[in-house]
Computed example of a mutant assay.
Amino acid sequence: MTTLARLLPKLRPASGASSSYFQRCLSSSSAAASQSESQIPSHPLFFSANLTRRDPKDRNLQWVFLGCPGVGKGTYASRLCNLLGVPHIATGDLVRDELSSAGALSAQLKEIVNQGKLVSDEIILSLLWKRLEGGQDKGQSGFILDGFPRTIKQAEILEGMIDIDLVVNLKLPEDILIEKCLGRRLCSQCGKNFNIASINVKGENGNPAMSMAPLLPPENCMSKLITRTDDTEEVVRERLRIYNDKTQPVEDFYRRRGKLLEFNLPGGIPESWPKLLQVLDLDDYEDKQSAATA
Rank of each mutant, 00 (worst) to 15 (best):
S120N: 08
G139P: 01
G147V: 09
L94I: 10
R96H: 09
E133C: 11
D55T: 08
T151C: 03
R150V: 05
I112N: 08
I144N: 00
I152R: 06
P69T: 12
P149C: 10
I162Q: 10
M161C: 09
W63M: 14
K138F: 05
N114R: 13
L145K: 03
Q154T: 02
S101P: 04
I162V: 13
V119T: 14
S141M: 07
N60R: 12
R131L: 05
E98W: 08
D93Y: 03
C81H: 05
P149A: 11
K153Q: 11
S141L: 10
L61E: 01
S126Q: 14
V64K: 01
W63A: 15
G134S: 13
F65D: 03
T52P: 04
S101E: 07
R79K: 15
L99Q: 10
G147I: 08
L132M: 14
W129I: 05
I157Y: 03
P56L: 08
A102H: 13
G70K: 02
L127D: 02
D97K: 15
N114F: 08
I164L: 11
D146W: 02
D93M: 04
L132Q: 06
G139E: 09
R53P: 00
G103V: 07
L132Y: 08
G74L: 10
R150P: 01
K153G: 07
S126R: 15
P149W: 09
G72R: 05
P69I: 13
R53T: 06
G72K: 07
Q115H: 13
D146Q: 01
Q62A: 04
G92K: 04
Q154R: 04
F65G: 00
L145Q: 04
V95Y: 01
V71I: 12
F143W: 14
Q108K: 15
Q140G: 01
A104T: 13
S126P: 06
K138G: 07
W63N: 02
A77F: 06
I144F: 03
V64S: 01
T75K: 06
L84K: 08
A90G: 10
L99S: 07
K73F: 13
L83G: 02
V95R: 01
E133Q: 11
K117M: 11
Q136M: 14
L125R: 04
G85Y: 03
W63L: 13
R150I: 06
G160V: 06
D93N: 12
A102Y: 10
A77V: 12
E122P: 05
S100Q: 15
L105T: 15
Q154L: 07
I157A: 03
